[in-house]
Design a protein around this nucleic acid. Structure first.
Length: 408
DNA sequence: CGCCCTTTGAAGGGG
DNA sequence: CCCCTTCAAAGGGCG
């Protein structure tokens, strides 16, 4: 914790947050965390097994299973989490969070893999032309509509904003000022983030691409093999954690999503992207379309994005619903530190989002999604809020196939 | 073709 | 202030 408040030392350091989380159940939790992070495939698997074990006993007990897991030692924590996470994090982790990221201790990110992503991915893979620099592309290199794995996106909500500052009320500079009100250093951070200086990125061996990349294509994605992927990923981490990657300038946040979507449907942004490049004046479409600004991703969503591929690789599952359940459980199994990272990222993302789209309100997107009958949600009502243990559907949420072979 | 499912978190609105 | 609702991602499933 060399420099928690490196910035201005103005607010309570990131320490607080940690402290806040520090509690009884920590140890057990850590163990679990280790299970995931330490990278032992076997362990990882076992963790999965545990999860599924309870689940398998009777699918309708998923919730119980989760509860069981929680009781195992995380229960207290889980409970606490229900209360703290948001408040504690958001309020305590206010801006200095960044510092927190920067000073991440080795142990912290080793498991999460999140640390390095952004930078690594940005480089060539998705940005043809290496149009990473804000200047070069007016195109929101946003989310790959598909195929690309979750981790990719790192590009800011839309470089667009940066590039055509004319449109956005707040130029990067402004942003900096705003954000860096009490912490100048931050300015560079953010801008750096989003602008993603090609050079800097380049240093990070794009070739490395992203560990998950390998995971993705994994032919054996199906069975047991997955571990390899997991391992490799873990191995990569160590490399990623290289100082360079984590250097102060880098924000773990890559702000994975580009909050802009074409109204018509899924993220067409990337199409849009192409158009932009190939056609000099797609602006017409652009304006006409008036992309939908999506909500910033919350911590869990960020986590999902990051881990989905991994889970898919590990399990043979493909269904998002099932995967999400798994992710939900894993999320709870994460150590506070690890979760904290995502909360931070989410917080930053929100911040950035606010700056990019000052007048935007989540309400703006209401009705665009078409909500299903809310019977389901009533469920949550009656059963109480979606607890930390999740409102796991009593259904056969997680298909048996997903369960580790051992269990089966 | 397009919504459902599933997860957690954030945010807005109503009581 | 608390509770409820909606949306965020994602992709197979299903009508």
């Amino acid at each position: 914790m060399p420099q928690l408040n490196s910035g201005g030392g103005d607010d309570l350091g990131a320490n607080d947050e940690m402290i806040a989380f520090k509690d009884e159940g920590e140890q057990e939790e850590k163990i679990q965390a280790n299970v995931f992070t330490e990278g032992d495939l076997a362990d990882l698997k076992s963790s999965l097994v545990n999860e599924s074990e309870s689940t398998s006993s009777s699918n309708s007990q998923t919730s119980n299973a989760a509860a069981a897991v929680a009781t195992a030692g995380a229960h207290s924590e889980a409970i606490r989490r229900m209360q703290d996470p948001q408040r504690v994090y958001q309020e305590k982790l206010s801006d200095h969070m960044e510092d927190g990221l920067k000073h991440q201790e080795p142990g912290m990110y080793k498991g999460s893999a999140y640390s390095g992503y952004p930078f690594l991915m940005l480089p060539d893979p998705y940005l043809p032309n290496g149009s990473v620099s804000p200047l070069s592309n007016k195109v929101p290199v946003v989310q790959p509509s598909h195929g690309v794995h979750p981790l990719t996106p790192l590009i800011p909500y839309s470089n667009e904003h940066f590039s055509h500052g004319s449109h956005s009320p707040h130029l990067p500079a402004d942003i900096n000022q705003k954000q860096g009100v009490h912490r100048p250093a931050q300015t560079s951070d953010i801008s750096g983030f989003y602008s993603l200086p090609p050079g800097g990125v380049g240093q990070i061996t794009p070739s490395m691409g992203w560990q998950s990349q390998p995971v993705y294509p994994l032919p054996s994605c199906g069975f047991r093999q997955p571990y390899t992927s997991a391992l490799s990923a873990g191995a990569t981490f160590s490399r990623l954690t290289h100082p360079l990657v984590l250097s102060p300038g880098m924000h773990a946040t890559g702000i994975p999503h580009a909050g802009i979507t074409s109204p018509s449907g899924k993220q067409e942004t990337d199409h849009y992207d192409r158009n932009m490049k190939s056609q000099p004046e797609p602006k017409r479409e652009k304006e006409a379309k008036k992309p939908t600004i999506k909500k910033p991703l919350n911590a869990f969503m960020l986590y999902m994005k990051e881990m989905r591929a991994k889970v898919i690789a590990e399990c043979t599952l493909k269904e998002s619903a099932a995967i999400n359940q798994i992710l939900g459980r894993r999320w709870h199994a994460l150590s506070r530190e690890e979760q904290a990272k995502y909360y931070e990222l989410a917080r930053k993302e929100r911040q950035l989002h606010m700056q990019l789209y000052p007048g935007w309100s989540a309400r703006d997107n209401y009705g665009k999604k078409k909500r299903r009958t809310r019977e389901k949600q009533q469920d949550s009502n009656s059963g109480g809020k979606r607890s930390a243990f999740g409102t796991y559907k009593e259904k056969d949420a997680v298909p048996a196939q997903f369960l580790p072979m051992e269990v089966l």
